[in-house]
Simulated assay, not measured.
Amino acid sequence: MDKLRALRYFVEVSETENFSRAAENLSVPASSVSRRIVDLENELGVALFHRSTRVVKLTELGGLYLEQIKPAIAALNLADEMVGQQSDTPSGIIRITAAPDYGRFRLLPALAVMKKQYADIVCDVELTDQISDLAHNDLDIAIRATSAPPDRSVARKLTDGQFIMVAAPEYIERNGMPKKADDLANHVALLYRRPNGILHWQAHMADGWHELNLPPALICNQGDTLLDEVLAGHGLALIPKWGIIDELAEGRLVHITLEDAEIAASRSENSGIYLLYHRPKYGLKKIRVAVDFLLSELTEKP
């Protein structure tokens, strides 16, 4: 038995949960995949999958086995790809994940520029709030908002995570400019909903932190919708500074500061937006040029 091939087939089936789909991804007959898996199970003396006509699931032992061998298979695949690079032109698929709002506002425009320079690189982008471990899956680059980047990845800070309170000039003309924290009770807020609940505003005052409960005009989990609403003059909003650089510069939004409080989205003072990658993958030309380009394009200048 070609055990290395069997192990690669095993990893693919575990990820697709389907022999036919795994075979299609591997460009081999489904019968070959099935036969290799059976040979592997016979050698190990255990069943790696629960099989039915509709689904293929890992057994408990299969899951444990996958956990042990997957990093080694990923390392071998990476080594094969690095050695197999023949062209000076970076090419291939790069899997990137990013938080939805940062992805739409900043990452996707940057990737459009990168595509003009590296036409043979294909970016497979997932915009999601779900956090994945770069060291244990096929992701190449992740962009996350965090105050504690993972130790096992290279983390390069793109910008801080500062949210600022803003409103449209028209809203301020109608409702007045809040000067102190108590004034906010006379205003309405546009609130962001995260996967774990509403993002309530925090006020850092002389006596410590206080959570604010402003009357909401809208609650939404889409940052671009909240931006449209605040631009339309429908309320106050906390927006990441990196998302409204042009609007502030053009005067379409006004940054509101209070005399007695600093308004923030979080009580963490070290939060930022980080670009993360797994160090061994930087040896691949496509990853290296993508990381370097995105750092150059997205890192906020002092």
Rank of each mutant, 00 (worst) to 15 (best):
V122H: 14
R104M: 11
D120Q: 10
S27R: 13
L127S: 02
P150W: 09
S31R: 14
Y282G: 02
W242M: 07
V154C: 13
A167N: 03
L298T: 05
R252Y: 00
D292P: 07
P149I: 07
R104Y: 00
L227M: 02
T299L: 05
E67A: 15
L48G: 04
L40R: 13
H204K: 09
A237L: 01
L66F: 08
P195L: 09
W209L: 14
L276R: 00
I37G: 05
S34H: 09
I256L: 15
K241Y: 12
A110T: 05
I73K: 02
E17D: 13
R156I: 02
M165F: 03
V166Q: 02
L134P: 00
V291F: 01
Y65L: 12
I121A: 12
P90E: 10
K281I: 04
E17V: 07
A72K: 12
A217R: 07
D246W: 06
T128Y: 00
Y65A: 13
I73A: 06
F19R: 10
D151C: 03
H200N: 14
L212P: 04
F163N: 12
P109H: 13
A72H: 10
D2I: 01
L107H: 11
A99W: 15
Q222N: 09
L214T: 05
Q202M: 11
A206M: 04
R54N: 13
G208D: 12
E229N: 07
R51Q: 03
L184W: 02
V154P: 00
L111F: 00
S296M: 10
I245A: 14
L108A: 11
A135L: 06
K115M: 04
I69D: 10
P280A: 10
S153D: 10
K157N: 08
E17M: 08
H278G: 08
